[in-house]
Amino acid sequence: MIVAELERALLARYPKADAEGWDHVGLSVGDPAAEIAGVACALDATEANVRRAQDAGANVLLTHHPVYIKAPEAFCPADASRPQCSAALYEAARCGVSIISLHTNLDCSHEARVCLSELLGAAPVSSLEHVDDPEATGLGALATLNDPCTLRDLATRAATAFGSDPRVWGEADRPCRTVAILGGSLGDFGELAIAAGADVVVTGEAGYHVAQDLALRGLPVILLGHDRSEEPFVDILMNSAVDAGVDPRHAIKILNPCQWWTVTKGENL
């Protein structure tokens, strides 16, 4: 199998037309005609992950987040004066590692909706974008908890499922049954969650004023961290690569390293 064939199969499953207009999906760097030796799947297309892929014997790095949204002015070795994508692209070209990304076109898929819902012990009903059409693809998920619980219990469940230390806005004892879920950034999807009648929204990140406003209006918010909320998508990437024809023995998962940490008040480091 060559790189172009893998890209074609992946984009047939997650069409470019489903991606947001500002997004960059598909092949970013690499030789479309290169034979695939292995595919490494990761959340982020960083220089470090390019090297991890190469060290694992993979010449394709398949990621959720694209290496860039807007291409950098130059592809150069790591330099603090340039964005990190500049070094990632330079290293990928130097090592012969192709980078393919499935971003918002994967976000709006049925698979993403089911994945995020099931991690919270919920049954997906529809996307947040198209609550009146359960079969339509769309960003976010509206789901019903199999076992309704309090906000505190749901936050604890989310912490375990996503490996996160979430920040929670809202009254701990609030009952939760209908959950709005959005991996990554919430943006203005809180308004869609309110309109859909959600009891709580679970997402990666949201601005202070956005989370405060939603909580004061009666919609609690559980913030997992952008990366933690989307790390489960790496398994979707792995499955998609294998379904496309990549030998399972040559499909490698790169776990996202901890990029940030928290301190509990009074904790001694």
Rank of each mutant, 00 (worst) to 15 (best):
M1Y: 02
E7V: 05
E7P: 04
R8I: 01
P15H: 00
D18R: 01
A19G: 04
W22L: 04
V25R: 00
G30N: 03
D31E: 15
I36P: 01
V39L: 11
C41W: 01
V50T: 01
R52G: 13
A58S: 06
V60K: 05
P66Y: 01
V67W: 00
Y68G: 07
P72M: 02
C76A: 14
A78E: 14
A78M: 10
R82P: 09
P83K: 03
S86G: 11
Y90T: 01
E91V: 09
E91C: 12
A93L: 15
R94M: 10
R94Y: 15
V97A: 13
S98I: 00
S98R: 00
I100A: 03
S101K: 00
S101D: 02
H103W: 04
L116N: 14
S126I: 10
E129K: 01
D132E: 12
D133I: 02
D133F: 04
A136G: 09
A143L: 11
N146R: 14
D147N: 09
L151S: 03
A155M: 04
T156P: 11
A158Y: 12
F162W: 10
D165Y: 13
A172L: 12
D173T: 11
P175G: 07
A180T: 00
G184Y: 10
S185V: 09
L192K: 14
A195N: 12
A195E: 15
A198W: 03
D199A: 02
G207M: 03
D213T: 10
R217D: 11
G218L: 06
L223P: 15
H226K: 05
H226W: 01
E231V: 07
P232H: 08
I236T: 04
M238P: 08
S240C: 07
S240E: 06
V242S: 05
A244W: 06
G245D: 13
R249K: 12
K253Y: 10
L255R: 15
K265Q: 14
